[in-house]
Amino acid sequence: MSKLPNIIFIFAILFCGAVYVHAQSIDTLSTVQFSVSPEAPVPFERVTIEAQAVGGLLGDATITWRQDGKEVLSGVGARSFSFTTGAVGKQTLIQASVYSVSKGTFTKDFVFIPATVNLLWEADTSAPPLYRSKTLYSPGSLIKVVALPQIIRNGTFVSSNSLSFEWRVGNEPRVASSGLGRSTLVYSGNQLNQNENISVAVFLAVSNVAQSN
């Protein structure tokens, strides 16, 4: 029996960070960095943010962490903070404020809006007349994959027509099948492969619409 294609479920994350620096700070941003793990968290996933700096900048620094405006952790050496993301489209605001006697004060804001993308596939293969289940993939057959994104912005689901899709088969990008609104991939499998690894990255497209009367 032929194996089913190894269809990968890809999770999309909308993430952006804004940085605000107070006037007392001198060259602070070049010495303090923040790492986020995982970088693309899925809904209800544990996320850790860690402040990092070269030298002794953070040695005597007081770091205060706020989640959605509420202070949840503060102290000297409080370099790491963990939280759990919410449901699809649920925004979480994280703010890190660092105060150093020698370097002043600065803050950095993180905005997390988790989203998911599920992939559905079907193979263009034949089955016996009374076979009622899904037809199986066989090497070299035609595969159709449809991405079903669940991305919420401003309280409403974003249409696939407003999203950009970047498809890959294995490590090979499928440029001709990618682009704005290209939520479907049709691909002829390799006759030498029992499995096919298909993935997609989804981006929120920003477009300007001009109207002339």
Rank of each mutant, 00 (worst) to 15 (best):
T135D: 04
V88F: 05
L163E: 01
F44T: 09
R153A: 02
V19Y: 03
S25F: 01
S102L: 14
E166K: 08
G75R: 05
L148H: 02
G75D: 03
A210M: 05
T64E: 12
S82Y: 08
E45S: 15
T184P: 12
G17L: 10
L163I: 14
G89N: 06
I8N: 02
K70P: 00
Q211T: 13
L120A: 11
W65S: 09
P38V: 02
S199E: 12
G56W: 04
A53Y: 06
F11Q: 10
Q191A: 14
V21F: 06
K90H: 13
F11V: 11
S183Y: 08
E71A: 09
T116N: 09
N171P: 03
T85A: 02
R79Q: 02
A18D: 14
F34R: 05
F34T: 07
V145M: 12
I49E: 07
S133E: 13
A23H: 06
L93F: 10
N171I: 00
P173M: 04
G89Q: 01
Q33F: 11
I63N: 02
W65K: 05
S100V: 10
G140E: 11
L93W: 04
V146Y: 12
Q95K: 13
K70N: 06
S102E: 14
D109A: 03
G140F: 07
P129C: 00
Q24T: 12
G89W: 05
S82D: 10
E71C: 03
S159E: 15
V175P: 03
S82A: 14
N213H: 11
S82W: 14
S183Q: 12
P149K: 02
G75H: 04
F11I: 12
A12Y: 07
N6V: 12
E172S: 05
A87E: 14
G179E: 15
F165G: 08
N195Q: 15
A205K: 13
W65D: 02
T116M: 10
I63P: 01
G56Y: 04
K144N: 07
G170Y: 02
Y137V: 03
N193L: 08
Q95L: 04
V21C: 03
L93T: 12
P114M: 02
S212H: 10
G56A: 07
A23E: 12
G55Y: 03
L119T: 09
T84D: 12
I26W: 13
G55E: 10
L119H: 00
E50G: 00
S164I: 07
T28G: 01
V76T: 14
A51C: 08
E196Q: 15
A78W: 00
Q194H: 06
T48G: 05
N118E: 15
I10Q: 09
M1C: 12
I151N: 03
V209K: 15
F203V: 01
K70G: 02
S100I: 03
S97G: 06
N213D: 13
S74Y: 04
S207D: 15
A115R: 02
S2G: 01
L120V: 13
N208W: 04
Q67H: 08
F9Y: 01
V158L: 15
V72G: 04
Y131M: 07
L180E: 07
G189T: 06
T85R: 12
S178V: 11
N193T: 07
Y137H: 07
P114S: 05
G69M: 05
P128W: 04
G170E: 08
L130R: 05
K3M: 11
A40P: 00
A123V: 10
F83K: 05
P41R: 13
Q194P: 00
E122I: 11
E196H: 01
V76G: 07
V146G: 01
V111Y: 08
L120F: 06
